[in-house]
Design a protein around this nucleic acid. Structure first.
Length: 451
RNA sequence: GCUCCGGUAGUAUAGUCCGGUCAAGUAUUCCGGCCUUUCGAGCCGAAGACCCGGGUCCAAAUCCCGGCCGGAGCACCA
C-alpha cells in the first residue's frame, strides 16, 4: 500500500527462559506465506551477536553504558532512590575492561549485566538504567541455532533497538506492552545520534471465545484437549486456514480494525462476513445432507435428468448431473435428505427437491418419509413458497464428516460429485454453510467455516 | 502502589489533533420488505452509540478539571 519493504526478523535472543524452538522459525514463515505476505528480507538475531557487541562497546567507550555487577535487589534499591549504583560511576576504561571480561567468560550467569545510562530522575523507575545484555550459561542452555557459541546475550531493547535503525525501519508497529521500551530505547538512539522511527502501539487483539494465548494453547495441546495448533477451536492462523477462512478476509479485517491503543475484541461474525463476501462469489455449490435420513418417492412418471449449476450466478462454472430412473411397479426412487428436513415435513404438504421435481409428503416415520410425485415445474410451487430441499439419490451418496467449530463432528452424505474435490477447496453446501475440504478419499472430511 | 495509555450503537470503526457542516458516517448484527430454484448472496427500509459530572465558549463527541471504568508497563522476557 505504501511501497514498503517487509523484513522478517526473528528475535530469538533468550536461549533460557523463552527458549526458541526450531520448528517455530518455519511455521512463522508458513503462516506469512499463506497470508500472502511476501518477505523481502529476513534476519535472525542469533546470527547477529557480533553486531550487538560492536555497538555495546561503543556505548561503553563513550561512557553511555556500563557493566553492572550489582545483584538485582541492590540495584533496584539504588534506582528507586534515584541514586547511581557503584558501577555507574566507574570510568569508561574500567567498564571496557569489565566488558572484555564478560565476553571472555569471566562472569557467570547473573554476575554482570550491561546497562544503558538514562536519566536517574526519570519518573518511571522501569526506565532508569535499563539492562541491555546479560550472561547466559549456554553450556547448560544451548541456543537451538548457535548452541554454546556465545555466553553474552542481548536483551530485547538492545537487539531490537539497534536492528530497527540498522535495518532502516521507518515505522515500528507493535503491541502497547512495548510502550516503555520505546522510552528506554530513545536514550540509546540519542547516544548513537540516531532518529527514532515512528512508533505506534496497538492494544491487544482478542476474538470472542477463542484462545490466542500461546502458553494456554501449548498447554492444551500437551494435555490432549486440542488436536494441534490447527484445532478449530483455536484462533491460530493454522486453525483459521483449516476452517476455510481466507487470508484476504483476515487482511481486510485487520486493516479495518487499524491500530488503536485500546484492546479490541473481534467477533467471529465480522470475520465471517468478510470471508463470506469473498467465498460467496467464488465457491462452488454442492449438496450435503446431515444425518442418514431417507425419502421414498413413488409414481415418478419418467426418467429425470437433473442438471445442477455449480454456482447460481455463474453458469460458466459448469454443472453436475444426476439421472433419476424410477423402478418397480410403483415407479419409485430413493433419496437421502437432511434429517432436519424430514423433521420439518408435514404430511399432505408439497415440497420441492431442488432443481428436480415437487413431491407430496404422504407419511413419516422417524428417519424416513414416503412421498408421491406431484409435478415437475418449479413454477407450480413458486407461489406457494414450498420448501426447497437438497437431495442425494441413493447410490450417489459419498459419506462425509464435517468438523464443526466446536470440534464436534456432523456426519452425513455429500453428493458423489464431491469425489472430484481436492483438499483445500472451499465450497458451499447449500443451506448448510461453507466448508473447506480436508480429505477426499473413501470419505469426505471437511471443516465447517460458517453459514 | 507507582508510570503511562484509552473509553463513540451488540461487535468493530470514522469523526477528536485544528470546537460549528455530527440532532454523529460506515461495516457487521438484529428486525421488516423486495428479489432469488440455498434458510446463501443481492437490493430497499428500520432499530441501535458520543462513560459520568462540572467548567470554558454564541457553540463541545471534540478543549479544561474531577470522578468512574478498562488496558499496559514496573524482568538479567519479548
Amino acid at each position: 500500500m505504501y511501497n514498503g519493504k517487509f523484513i522478517l526478523r526473528f528475535e530469538d535472543t533468550d536461549p533460557k527462559i523463552k527458549r526458541p524452538s526450531l520448528i517455530f522459525y518455519d511455521s512463522i514463515r508458513q503462516d506469512l506465506k499463506w497470508l500472502g505476505c511476501k518477505v523481502d528480507e529476513e534476519y535472525i538475531q542469533s546470527d547477529r551477536l557480533p553486531i550487538y557487541y560492536e555497538y555495546t562497546e561503543r556505548l561503553i567507550r563513550d561512557g553511555n553504558a556500563y557493566v553492572c555487577e550489582c545483584p538485582p535487589e541492590e540495584f533496584r534499591k539504588k534506582t528507586l532512590a534515584k541514586e547511581p549504583c557503584p558501577c555507574r560511576i566507574l570510568s569508561a576504561a574500567e567498564n571496557l575492561e569489565r566488558w572484555k571480561r564478560m565476553l571472555s567468560g569471566g562472569y557467570s550467569e547473573g554476575q554482570a549485566v550491561v546497562r544503558v545510562k538514562t536519566d536517574l530522575e526519570h519518573p518511571n523507575p522501569a526506565v532508569r538504567d535499563w539492562p541491555a545484555l546479560r550472561v547466559i550459561d549456554t553450556k547448560k542452555y544451548p541456543h537451538p541455532r548457535v548452541g554454546s557459541k556465545y555466553i553474552v546475550w542481548p536483551l530485547y531493547n538492545l537487539a531490537a533497538g539497534l536492528d530497527d535503525h540498522l535495518m532502516g525501519m521507518t515505522h515500528i508497529i507493535r503491541g502497547k506492552e512495548h510502550y516503555t521500551n520505546m522510552v528506554r530505547q530513545k536514550y540509546m538512539y540519542e547516544y548513537l545520534g540516531w532518529k527514532y522511527p515512528e512508533a505506534i502501539h496497538y492494544g491487544r487483539l482478542k476474538i470472542t471465545g477463542a484462545f490466542l494465548s500461546k502458553s494456554k494453547i501449548v498447554q492444551g495441546i500437551k494435555e490432549g484437549i486440542y488436536a494441534g495448533y490447527d484445532d478449530p477451536r483455536l484462533g491460530t492462523f493454522a486453525a483459521l486456514r483449516k476452517r476455510g477462512i481466507t487470508p484476504e478476509a483476515i487482511k481486510k479485517m485487520i486493516i479495518d480494525v487499524g491500530t488503536k491503543s485500546n484492546d479490541v475484541t473481534l467477533s467471529w461474525e465480522n470475520l465471517f462476513s468478510y470471508n463470506r463476501k469473498i467465498l460467496d462469489a467464488t465457491s462452488n455449490r454442492y449438496f450435503f445432507v446431515a444425518g442418514h435420513a431417507k425419502i421414498t418417492v413413488k409414481n415418478i412418471p419418467k426418467i429425470f435428468n437433473a442438471k445442477l449449476p455449480l454456482h447460481p450466478e455463474k453458469p460458466e462454472k459448469g454443472f453436475r448431473q444426476y439421472s433419476i430412473t424410477p423402478i418397480g411397479d410403483e415407479n419409485a426412487s430413493f433419496f437421502y435428505v437432511a434429517e432436519k428436513d424430514i423433521t420439518n415435513m408435514e404430511t399432505g404438504k408439497i415440497i420441492r427437491l431442488m432443481e428436480l421435481f415437487n413431491v407430496k409428503i404422504e407419511e413419516k416415520a422417524g428417519n424416513w418419509a414416503g412421498a408421491t410425485f406431484a409435478s415437475e415445474s418449479y413454477e407450480d410451487v413458486r407461489k406457494s413458497k414450498a420448501q426447497l430441499i437438497q437431495w442425494i439419490p441413493v447410490g450417489e451418496e459419498y459419506p462425509c464428516s464435517i468438523i464443526m467449530p466446536d470440534a464436534s463432528v456432523t456426519e452425513g452424505y455429500a453428493e458423489s460429485a464431491c469425489k472430484k474435490l481436492k483438499p483445500d477447496a472451499i465450497i458451499q453446501f447449500e443451506r448448510f454453510g461453507f466448508v473447506r475440504i480436508n480429505e477426499a478419499d473413501e470419505k469426505l472430511v471437511a471443516y465447517y467455516a460458517h453459514k
